[in-house]
Design a protein around this nucleic acid. Structure first.
Lengths: 333, 333
DNA sequence: ACCTAAATTGTTTGCGCTAACAATTTTCTC
DNA sequence: GAGAAAATTGTTAGCGCAAACAATTTAGGT
């Protein structure tokens, strides 16, 4: 049987309270007593029961992180940052995959309210149907990414402006036929809407007429479906001058397909992505992208979350993360 | 204040036990009573407190997953599989990054023993110094990957054989100078040892003399340090006929560097990786690799873990996952 | 030395839940 | 319809911990 505070107390010849004091370190404990207790803990190989502590304190020390697709390099990099920042603050991270499913998002909120996690960092996708909307009693929650309405704290990159700037950067003399890859066929994700909007704003600024035939839809934002969508597109359309993919993952799929078709990047077609994922830097050719500091996202998200966990009173707050257009070989002249 | 079982019971006009019965569903509850209870739960917006349940049951329903580097696509894909399989069995997953640090591994074991997680899936790196070795009282744990000794349940791919087969596959008439990338300078990871061993076994089989100058060391298994290590290598060595990277991530870094140097893959040099990561399939050129079923790893790891959680008596068990050499454009003639 | 205040340590309760055990009601058998 | 068995539901204790409250020891001031 596992040792408990009581066992430690008995062995050290003190009361449970003293053992608790030694662990928490708030109430002072005299030198000799502390020593005896610590020795007893070591001898009994005592490990505190965190469930019990969680029940008693009402806080588990765990936060949830819910992302739409865990398999992407972007998720991996973001998760890493969040885990590291959280750990530095004494939190553990429970990861969840929503699969863009509002129902699953709702389930996670519930879990948070079930005290297993103290708060939730959530990247909602189809917000219209998201649990955040449905008026569920919200746990401390921080939203990641584009959210059109003010529903909870959130950390975001201005996707609209970034997509606009990227489109402007891609536009060069001779590059007027700029395609986008990632607009969704069915229900639009908030992110897709923002990025498509920015793209069109840039076209307007450039005086390039919008061309519906340059919007390539791709429901799943993976390399595989990007390659597939692009292949299908190229079968029945002329090669655009440039291709702006809504994520780096899609861009990698596109690069592979273009290479297979014998199209040279950037000579025949320039390519750009979004997220600045590590593998994009090492793509062939290296990928032009919208870069932003993922560690900053993690830091800010955790700051908002911990603040809200300790004090539920503030209104909803927004934190914007700066972005930067990083031009690499896939779009250089 | 949050509603508790007691509140629900009072409102439904039943006892707490009945409410518990309704939730657990083991002890039968009559139709009308169940209905009353369910309605009361809905009205009070009741959510069970999982900390309390965890304390009472001695199980939290959470398992830990500890990987050396969360930022890699491989980690992402594996984590996804594990999260999905775990979720299907009613478990949540807490992720942790060990950074190949034995001390951190030890900390995680402790956390497991602290009842916050019911079990741990751990990918140990430098096993010699790993906590698994130090004789810590082990929680239910399943090890992932190469482990030379029999210390706990584990799921693994035969890296030795896979590396051997890959080396054999790379060897073609005219390709005799086969380099490896990923041997470590300092303390060797178990994985590096296996893969290097398989590589050398293949050389022996082929009658190719071992050549120390074809072992390129690379301490961090990332694209960046792979590219750097390879760049340095090429500055003072002739171009090998083939390059076998110990992970796909490193291979991607290598591909990028080779491209920058104007070396053609596979004509000037064939390249291969290990892990069959999605981005490798879409690399330019698509990457030859050792493939294995990550979902199978997840399934088996969870099976071993849950079995051990329910019954601590079995001896240590091994599950081997099949691998396959997948030849893609980066090594095709 | 005596009293007061400060510093420690001790005693006990309850966080919310589940299940052992007990009590009650319903159903069945003849 | 009476008795027994089966099906429900109720009562209560305790999982391990932290802190409210109480008791004790120690230090400080005169």
């Amino acid at each position: 049987m596992r040792a408990t505070v009581k066992d430690v107390a008995r062995r050290a010849g003190v009361s449970p309270k003293t053992v608790s004091n030694v662990m928490n370190g708030i109430v002072p404990v005299s030198g000799p007593t502390r020593l005896r207790v610590e020795q007893a803990m070591a001898e009994l190989d005592y490990v505190p029961n965190l469930s019990a502590r969680g029940l008693r304190n009402g806080r588990s020390g765990v936060i949830g992180l819910a992302l739409p697709d865990l398999a992407t390099p972007f998720s991996a990099e973001l998760a890493q940052s969040i885990v590291e920042v959280a750990h530095a603050q004494g939190f553990s991270v429970q990861i969840e995959e929503t699969g863009s499913d509002p129902h699953r998002e709702h389930e996670l909120m519930t879990r948070a309210r079930a005290n297993l996690i103290d708060g939730l960092i959530l990247n909602p996708v189809v917000l219209k149907e998201s649990a955040v909307q449905v008026g569920v009693a919200l746990p401390p929650v921080v939203l990641l990414g584009e959210v059109t309405q003010q529903l909870a704290d959130r950390v975001f990159v201005d996707s609209f402006a970034a997509a606009r700037d990227m489109t402007l950067a891609l536009a060069r003399p001779g590059r007027r036929r700029i395609a986008v890859l990632g607009v969704n066929r069915g229900r639009q994700s908030a992110t897709a809407i923002q990025r498509a909007g920015g793209y069109e704003a840039a076209l307007d600024m450039l005086g390039i007429p919008r061309d519906e035939s340059l919007r390539i839809s791709c429901d799943s934002w993976t390399p595989a479906s990007a390659a597939e969508a692009l292949a299908e597109y190229l079968d029945s359309n002329p090669v655009p001058d440039a291709l702006f993919c809504f994520t780096d993952s899609m861009a990698l799929g596109a690069l592979n397909l273009l290479w297979k078709r014998g199209l040279r990047v950037p000579d025949d077609i320039a390519v750009a992505g979004f997220d600045d994922v590590i593998d994009g830097r090492f793509a062939v050719p290296s990928l032009t992208t919208v870069s932003f500091d993922k560690r900053a996202i993690a830091t800010e998200a955790l700051r908002l979350l911990t603040e809200r966990m300790s004090d539920r009173s503030h209104g909803q707050r927004l934190v914007e993360i700066e972005y930067e257009i990083v031009e690499r070989d896939s779009s250089r002249a």
